[in-house]
Amino acid sequence: MRYSLSLLLIAVFASVASAQAMAGNDIPDDVKVRCKADYSRLCSGVMPGGGRVLACFQAHKGEVSPDCADALSQMKK
């Protein structure tokens, strides 16, 4: 299970470059809701915008909750 989650996160964050082009307000509300706790826990010192939050999630990819990882993976679809 942990290995599968790691592979999912790698796939999600491999596309971070394209996702970073999105403005913070272009992130779907579902992702904001599902990743709120992860943002507070892992990236609260990161100012949203310019892909900085997504980069923070990438830097903490092993610590992101499964629900948030799922929400992030839905962004690229």
Rank of each mutant, 00 (worst) to 15 (best):
M1P: 09
M1G: 01
R2P: 06
Y3N: 07
S4L: 14
S4D: 06
L5F: 12
L5M: 14
L7S: 05
L8T: 15
L8N: 12
L8K: 08
L9P: 08
I10Q: 13
I10C: 07
A11C: 09
A11V: 12
V12G: 02
V12L: 04
V12E: 05
V12T: 08
F13D: 04
A14H: 13
A14N: 15
A14W: 14
V16R: 07
V16P: 10
A17V: 14
A17I: 15
S18W: 14
S18E: 08
S18V: 15
A19G: 08
A19D: 01
Q20E: 10
Q20P: 04
A21Y: 07
M22I: 07
M22S: 03
M22L: 10
G24N: 03
N25T: 07
N25L: 06
D26T: 10
I27Y: 05
I27R: 01
P28T: 08
P28A: 05
P28I: 09
P28H: 11
P28C: 01
V31H: 00
K32V: 09
V33H: 07
R34D: 10
C35P: 05
C35K: 01
C35A: 01
C35N: 00
C35F: 12
C35Q: 00
K36V: 02
A37E: 12
A37T: 12
D38S: 07
D38F: 10
Y39S: 05
Y39G: 03
Y39T: 06
S40Q: 11
R41G: 02
R41Q: 04
R41N: 05
R41I: 15
L42P: 00
C43T: 01
S44E: 01
M47S: 11
M47E: 08
M47H: 09
P48S: 00
G49R: 00
G50Y: 05
R52M: 05
R52S: 02
V53W: 00
V53H: 02
L54D: 04
L54M: 07
A55F: 12
A55D: 07
A55H: 12
C56G: 03
F57P: 03
A59R: 13
A59I: 13
A59L: 13
H60C: 06
H60A: 06
K61M: 13
K61V: 09
E63H: 06
V64S: 02
S65L: 06
S65E: 08
D67I: 14
D67P: 10
D67Y: 12
D67W: 12
C68Y: 14
D70A: 15
D70F: 14
D70M: 15
D70K: 15
A71E: 10
A71F: 08
A71K: 00
L72A: 04
L72V: 14
L72N: 02
S73T: 13
Q74H: 15
Q74M: 13
K76F: 14
K76V: 15
K76G: 10
K77F: 10
